Simulated assay, not measured.
Amino acid sequence: MCGRYSSTKAPADLADEFRAVDATGDDTVPDFNVAPTKQVTTVVERHPRDDDGEPVRDRTERTLRRVRWGLVPSWSKDPSSGARMINARSETAADKPAFRRALSSRRCLLPADGWYEWQRRDTDTGKTKQPYFTCFQDGSSIAMAGLWEYWKPKDEKLLAEYPDGLVTVAVLTTEAVGPLADVHDRMPLVLDPGDWDAWLDPDADSTAPAVTRLLAPPAAALVDRMELRPVSNRVNNVRNNGPELLEALRPEDVDEALQLDLLNTGTNP
């Protein structure tokens, strides 16, 4: 699964890395503890529209945009369902009403420094969760596959609250690969840079072979480029947000962190 991640690179740097135009606005700040319902940066590719509002089919534009994490289907009566739809399983997204249309025509990427996952452990004194952070060893961005959706309220009260509607996103997940499976059985669907164009292609639907092949777990070679490290359980509290959350725990400190976790189980994700 993916319930927390870190995203701290400046939009200008992400625009260069993902070959996109920055359309994020002025509200983007480094976030070491990205949590559901927050505004997050996505990479989308669409056909621009002409003066009549029709898509220009021979051109595409790739942009960085800010959307809310937690997908709200277009048919929802209100946006409350978004808090529960932060992830979509890559194996079943094509069959789920909430994700089917988005997979067919609204795919995106979510740039991240890396993501957090919690390993469940049974100790002599109780059950604990040790957080781990996974990132690329060379510092390049993790590109998590995502689905976005546009929701427009029909209720007058909600229309007053969301006059421009709401754009939301879910992170696709898949079976964990290699050593990542020792921490959790699921992981974000991470795409190699060579696959970004195929995933973002607005003219390829969910049945296109170039898209369906990307719904499988990433290759072991891609995971081999990643670093997996235990980090402080301070990440459990979304109010904690700083570079110290990414610092690796010393092996001798892991057991101590687990003991502290037993005392603070109410703050676990």
Rank of each mutant, 00 (worst) to 15 (best):
C2E: 06
G3Q: 06
G3Y: 04
G3E: 06
R4D: 05
S6L: 09
S7K: 04
A12F: 00
D13K: 13
D16K: 15
E17G: 11
D22H: 10
G25H: 01
G25S: 08
G25W: 05
D27N: 11
D27P: 06
D27I: 09
T28S: 15
D31M: 12
T37W: 00
V40H: 09
T42F: 01
V44K: 13
P48G: 07
D50I: 07
D50F: 10
G53T: 09
L64A: 04
R65I: 07
R68P: 01
W69F: 01
P73Y: 06
S74C: 09
S76K: 01
D78N: 08
P79N: 07
N87Y: 06
N87I: 02
A88D: 00
R89Y: 10
R89L: 07
S90K: 10
E91V: 02
A93C: 11
A94M: 05
D95A: 14
D95N: 13
K96P: 08
A98E: 12
A98N: 04
F99D: 08
A102E: 00
S105L: 08
R106P: 00
R107W: 02
L109A: 04
P111T: 00
P111L: 05
W115H: 08
W115C: 04
W115L: 08
R120P: 10
R121M: 12
D122R: 13
D124A: 15
P131N: 02
P131T: 02
F133A: 01
F136W: 12
Q137R: 15
G139W: 08
S140T: 14
S140H: 15
I142D: 09
I142P: 12
I142N: 06
A145E: 08
A145S: 02
A145H: 08
G146W: 09
L147G: 05
K152E: 14
P153C: 04
D155Q: 11
A160L: 12
L166H: 08
T168Y: 07
V169W: 02
A170M: 08
L172H: 03
A176M: 10
G178M: 02
L180R: 10
D182Q: 11
D182E: 12
M187P: 06
M187R: 03
L189Y: 04
V190P: 03
V190T: 10
L191T: 06
G194M: 02
D197K: 14
W199E: 03
T207D: 13
A210V: 10
T212C: 05
T212Y: 01
T212P: 05
R213C: 12
L215D: 00
P217K: 07
A221N: 11
P230M: 04
P230Y: 01
N233L: 15
R234I: 00
N236A: 13
N236W: 05
N236T: 03
N240H: 01
G242E: 01
R250F: 07
R250L: 13
A257Q: 11
Q259M: 13
L260D: 11
D261G: 15
N268F: 02
P269T: 11
